[in-house]
Amino acid sequence: MNVSTRHEITLTVNGKTETRTVESRTTAADFLRDDLRLTGTHLGCEHGVCGACTIIVGEASMRSCLMFAVQLDGTTITTVEGLAQNGKMTVLQESFREHHALQCGFCTAGFLTTATAFLKETPDPTADEVREALSGNICRCTGYIPIVEAVLDAARTIKAAKG
C-alpha cells in the first residue's frame, strides 16, 4: 500500500523488464509513450472510444488510456513494437501490408494489438466475428473492409502453417 502520489512499478514490456517511478495519475498510455518512449501506441481520443491506444495486457486487449501506469505493476504487456520478433514481422503485420489495410497508419497499432489478441483466442474466425472484434477501433481512412480481409487472411495463413 502506498500513500504517496509516486509509485515504483516493475513490469515486463515486450519481453523486457522495466522498473520506473510513476505518478499515480499518469495513464498507462502516457507512461509507455513518454517514459518508455514506445510511441507506437497512439492516443486518438484519450477517453476510451477510438481504440488507437490498445495494448495487450497478459493475453487481453485493453485501452491504455483507461488505465494508470501504476496499475501495470507486475503485469506483462505487449505493444505494437513487440509484435515482430527479431525484426521479422508477424503474419498479421504482413497481411496488413498485403491487403492495404492502412493508410495514414495512426490507428494501425490498435488494430494490430486487438487482432493479435483476438486471433489467439479465435484462430478460425468468421468475417462477422472479425468485424465484431474490431468494432472498438476506429479507422477513418480505410473503411475497414481491407482490415477485415487482412485479419481473415492472416488467420488462414497461420492455420495453414500449423498444418
Binding site: G51, T54, V57, A60, S61, M62, R63, A133, S135, G136
Partner: peptide, 8 residues
C-alpha cells in the same frame, strides 16, 4: 461495449 472494454 467492445472487447477491450469488456476485458477490463
Amino acid at each position: 461495449a467492445h472487447v477491450q472494454i469488456r476485458n477490463r
